[in-house]
Design a protein around this nucleic acid. Structure first.
Length: 578
DNA sequence: AAGCCTTTGAAGAAT
DNA sequence: ATTCTTCAAAGGCTT
């Protein structure tokens, strides 16, 4: 939430999410970049699939993992670049919102993309609409139809995206992205002028920080000015200014909210309009339900934008069953979740494993192996997502979803029997991860905390945080047992001084840690037993502003930061096992 | 059928 | 101010 606040949009901006990094590995990584991605994959697979894999390989594997990413990045960037170029062209041409002439219009829902937030419509990776918006240039194949059919959207608008898709270009994020640039309105000059947007929290209109806004999203005609895309840095790299909003183009479905381009686009694409407000007529062209909303029912917005029940009916999404209950508005996806969505299919395809748990482990490792830039993309997307979400559902609170999932309270009481827990964990670990190596991942995950900004503040730091990196690479060490089901990294990473111990002691499952886990710090990777990395101290002040354009991550900043960071070794906290 | 497992991150609740 | 818990996705597996 805080992030959302706008205070400065910038906050959200790069700062918060900036990233995690693993620096150490970079050198090696670079060196190794040559290695083919396949090999990486193979490594991963092997690790997953092959029991035989030995620990030593870990470093390699890690690198390998990264590499794929890297490669992908390259491609993606190129592709993206292409898209952007095209998008620009189109904008110039005119039209984004203009009209129908872009079948691929982002607003159009992609069929399979049901609203991401809708429970019903789980998105296919390809389907994340809002992402699409963000990455309009990227196409998502397919999805078109369903939604349309359901959606009230005017036919012309509702077109399916498919049209636009460029199969050949595949951005790493592609899956997430559906649209082509076409969204961009032609006319609008790229200005950073952003229309004011409501502060999610306060509801007070504020001017979005450039960093907050995404040019990719279609802006409502009136309201929006052009805003710098969050990924603006990226765009800039491309050398092209992308912001424009069609002057007339698109009618924002959610009048109530003053949105910036990004918002509007997101909204349209991801969030169901009805949910938010909209009178039918005001529905977004796309008619796409908000992804976050699970049930058809409308969630009562504090604002009072409620949708009449009738709205539901129209709601494109099947859930028509109107469960009277308020619709379940899902949490916005975080960076990692976005990454997962994107990459899961790929990983699954590459691996024989299908279990999500196993896949997720791989993804977790890969996540860590991602370059800053790569992660930054996701953090940025996530930030946007949260921003949009807050805009759409000002009254929504994560707490609203508490208890919705009956989920397990997993054995929280691990304390009762750590051993059992450990056993279980181990068992599972084995189950999913054939080799011990696999187990590393968990460790890495811990390390991840370092990398990724745990909190907004952390995020700030994170850009710089690179040093922290845990590098899985380095770590030969394997966890024989999985630390625990869900340790909260946070805890673990608490500053050394703090209590890691105490916390662990607490009920949380986490505590039971197993001594076996070691995280290699730095490249060297000493292996302390059950070390806990303390979260890097955020260098908040550091280039706060700079962050906004993560441009390549303010490398300067990063470097300095980096240096700092390195100078400050992460502190390891030994978790008191049991 | 419901929940678990697994991952990271965000946010809320609890301490 | 910290720490802990829940949820977000996803799909095979377990109960």
């Amino acid at each position: 939430m805080p992030q959302l606040n706008g205070g400065g949009g910038d906050d959200l901006g790069a700062n918060d999410e900036m990233i995690s990094f693993k620096d150490e590995g970079e050198q090696e990584e670079k060196i190794s970049e040559n290695v083919s991605a396949e090999r990486d994959l193979d490594d991963v697979k092997s690790s997953l699939v092959n029991e035989s894999e030995n620990n030593s390989s870990s470093s390699d594997s890690e690198q390998a993992e990264r590499r794929p990413q890297t490669r992908a990045d390259s491609d993606s960037y190129e592709k993206t670049r292409d898209y952007f170029s095209e998008a620009l062209r189109r904008q110039q041409d005119g039209g984004f919102f203009k009209s129908p002439h872009y079948p691929g219009y982002p607003f159009l829902m992609i069929p399979d993309l049901t609203n991401p937030y809708l429970s019903n419509g789980s998105l296919s990776p390809t389907a994340r609409t809002y992402l699409q918006m963000k990455w309009p240039l990227l196409d998502v194949p397919g999805s078109a139809g369903l939604k349309d059919s359901r959606s009230p959207t005017p036919g012309h608008l509702s077109n399916k995206v498919p049209v636009v898709q460029h199969a050949h270009h595949v951005h790493p994020l592609t899956p997430l992205i559906t649209y082509s640039n076409e969204h961009f309105s032609p006319g609008t000059p790229p200005s950073h002028l952003s229309p004011e947007i409501l502060d999610p929290k306060t509801g007070i209109p504020r001017t979005p920080h450039p960093s907050e806004l995404s040019p990719y999203y279609p802006l409502s005609p009136g309201a929006v000015g052009s805003i710098a895309h969050p990924l603006g840095w990226f765009m800039q790299q491309q050398g092209q200014p992308m912001y424009s909003i069609p002057p007339g183009g698109f009618r924002h479905p959610y009048p109530a909210l003053a949105m910036n381009a990004s918002m509007s686009s997101l909204v349209s694409s991801r969030f169901s309009p009805h949910m938010v407000t909209p009178p039918p007529h005001s529905l977004h062209q796309t008619g796409i339900p908000h992804p976050a909303i699970v049930s058809p029912a409308i969630k009562q917005e504090p604002n009072g934008d409620n949708i009449s029940p009738s709205m539901h009916a129209k709601s494109p999404v099947p859930p028509k069953k109107e469960e009277d209950k308020k619709p379940h508005i899902k949490k916005p996806l975080n960076a990692f979740m976005l990454y997962m969505k994107e990459m899961r299919a790929k990983v699954v395809a590459e691996c024989t494993l299908k279990e999500s748990a196993a896949i997720n482990q791989i993804l977790g490792r890969r996540w860590h192996s991602l370059s800053r830039e790569e992660q930054a993309k996701y953090y940025e997307l996530a930030r946007k997502e949260r921003q949009l979400h807050s805009q759409l559902y000002p009254g929504w609170s994560a707490r609203d979803n508490y208890g919705k999932r009956k989920k397990r309270k997993r054995d929280n009481k691990p304390d009762s029997k750590p051993e059992d827990f450990s056993i279980r964990s181990k068992k599972q670990c084995v189950q999913y991860l054939p080799s011990e190596k696999m187990c590393d991942s968990p460790a890495s995950s811990h390390g991840s905390m370092l990398d990724s900004p745990a909190t907004p503040s952390a995020a700030l730091a994170s850009p710089a945080a690179p040093a922290a990196t845990h590098s899985e690479q380095a770590q030969p060490l394997s966890l024989t047992t999985k630390p625990e089901g869900r340790m909260h990294h946070h805890h673990h990473f608490s500053l050394a001084g703090k209590s890691s111990g105490s916390s662990s002691s607490s009920s949380s499952s986490s505590s039971s840690s197993h001594p076996t886990i070691s995280i290699p710090m730095g490249s060297s990777g000493s292996q302390p037993t059950t070390p806990i990395l303390s979260r890097p101290i955020p260098f908040t002040s550091l280039h706060h502003s700079m962050l906004s354009p993560p441009s390549p991550f303010h490398q300067a900043a990063l470097h300095s930061h980096h240096a700092l960071f390195q100078s400050q070794p992460l502190s390891l906290v030994t978790k008191p096992t049991e």
